[in-house]
Structure formats: structure tokens, C-alpha cells
Amino acid sequence: MPEAAEPAPEAPAAPRVDAEEMARRAVRRRWLLNLPAILWLILFAAGPLLVVLLYSFLAAGDYGGVRWELSTDGWFAVLMTRDIFDDTLRLQDAHLAIFWRSVKLSVMTTLACLLLGFPTAYFIATRSRANRNLWLFLITIPFWTNLLIRTFAMLEWIRAQGVINSVLTGLGIVDEPVQMLYTDFSIMLGMTYVYFPLMVLPLYASMEKLDFRLVEAAYDLYASRLQVLRGVIVPLVSPGIVAGSILVFIPSLGAYVTPRVLGGGKQMMLGNLIELQFGQGRNWPLGAALSISLLALVMVALIFYVRAAQKGGEGHG
């Protein structure tokens, strides 16, 4: 509970402590507040990852796992490969292709979530105070059912003999059923569905406090609705946009179940490639090296993105 760790109250009427001491105390309080998160994550997330880092520098065990010998084969195989037929050294284009597809689909999913999620969050944030939580629950309830079942239920709508195609052919809009299933479109549709609340909830959290007097002021200055949206609302809710985009983009990169079920599994995404190495491929060092590369890339991109977004946000605020 947050209350429990609230630091000891500073005596309000105490004589003014010098500014430096105050600042030091403030920083100490920050660290106290961060401590549970730091400890928990080091113990149960980041710490264990050191194992993976270590594994990436070992040799692959014959039947999965690792052999305790130093080796850089895993790292080498991330980008380079020896052709299995003519033994020439070349760039591992399969990995690059899979990486590119993952980035492309993740960007598209994030955009789709943003385009659909923004109006939805706005809609919820502009309901009466009593109704907002209800709408919020309505967003999350579909996600309380199992992911696989939900994905199967979607299959029923978009497959060749499914509901949408029956309606389309029934109304004579198309003659032949449209092949939606097992395409990039169906993967994107599925991921947009799955990650939708990850966009809406942070957006809502920052929109809910939107001060509509600012909007009113903008209208008084003869701004159009679009100008208000772009010039006033979007900058004010940019923290929510940043948070939502991170929450959608990064997990989509490693998505595994949705591409497999709705994409038909014919083309791998990064998550599937890494899974292959830890599973049937029995090349844990390569799997480990691939994930550390992914982690490093995302981490760098994230830090740049947040810094840039913060600067942008401050400029407006």
C-alpha cells in the first residue's frame, strides 16, 4: 500500500532548514519511494536476466540448455550465418526480414490503437464523473476472458466462412469471400484488439484531468475543432500518448500467440524466432543473444523517445 511507505512527516512549523538539506531530503524520499520497485524488479526481472546475458556467451548444449564453455557463436549468429550449402559467410537475411516485419507490424498496430483509442478515451473522459468508471470497466471486461479463447472467437468473425464474409456475400457486396484470415491484416487486427486497452487506459488517465477551460479559451480565439485538437488537446495529453505507445509498441514486438493463431504461423515474428531457439531449435545462446539485442535496441529507442517527448511536452506546458 502506498500509504505505508509515505516518509515520516516533516515538521511543518520547524525553522527553515537550508535549501541544500531540503533538496537532499527530497532526493532521499524519492529513493525510498522507488525502493520497493527497484528491489522487486532486480529480484524477479532484471536480476534473473543476467542469467540470459551469461547464456548468450556460452556454447549451445546438445539438447537445449548450455554447455559451460565460453563462446561467441550465439552473438555471431544474430547477424551472420554460414550458408549451410556452400559454406560462404553472409548476412543472416532471414533474421533481418523477421526483425523488419516485427517492427513494421508493431508500428502499424500502435498507430491503429492510437487512432481508435484516442477518440474512445476522449469519449470516456467526457462522460459524467459517475459514469466514467463504468465505461472504463466496459473496456477491460472483454480482456478478463482468456486470450486464446478471445482469439478463437475473433477467428469466427473473420474466417472465409465467418460472420463478416457471410454478411458481405449475403448483401451482394462481394461475390467471393474475402480472405482476411492468415494475412498481415488479420495479425494487425488481432494485435490491435489485444493491445487496445493498453492504449486507452493511459490515454484516459491523462485526459481525465483535461482542463476544458483551455479548450473554451481556444474556441474564443476562433480556433477550429481540428486546431483545438492539434494545438490544445493533443499537447496536453501527450504523457498519455507516450505511455500508451510504449505499452502497445514494445509488447507487440515480442508478440507470440496472436501472430501464431491469426497469422496462420507461416511467417515468424521476433517472439516466434526467439521461442524457436529456446524450443525446437535448441540454440539457447542464439535465443539469449537475440533477446539481449532486442532489449538493448528498445531501451535506447525508449530513452530517446521519452526524452524527446518530455521536451516537446514542456514546450507546450
Binding site: 546438445d62 550465418t81 549451410i84 532471414a94 523477421i98 515468424m268 524466432l273 531449435g281 535448441r282
Partner: peptide
């Protein structure tokens, strides 16, 4: 059979190329 690592590596390479 349970394939030795050399065969396994070749299979994985073909499998990856197939699904790239």
C-alpha cells in the same frame, strides 16, 4: 530419432529460412 546437434542446426536454418 533424436537428431544430433549438427543435423539439428541444419534443420533450424532451413526452418528459419522457410518462415522468414
Amino acid at each position: 530419432e533424436s537428431c544430433p546437434p549438427e543435423a539439428q542446426a541444419l534443420f533450424t536454418a532451413i526452418w528459419t529460412e522457410l518462415q522468414k
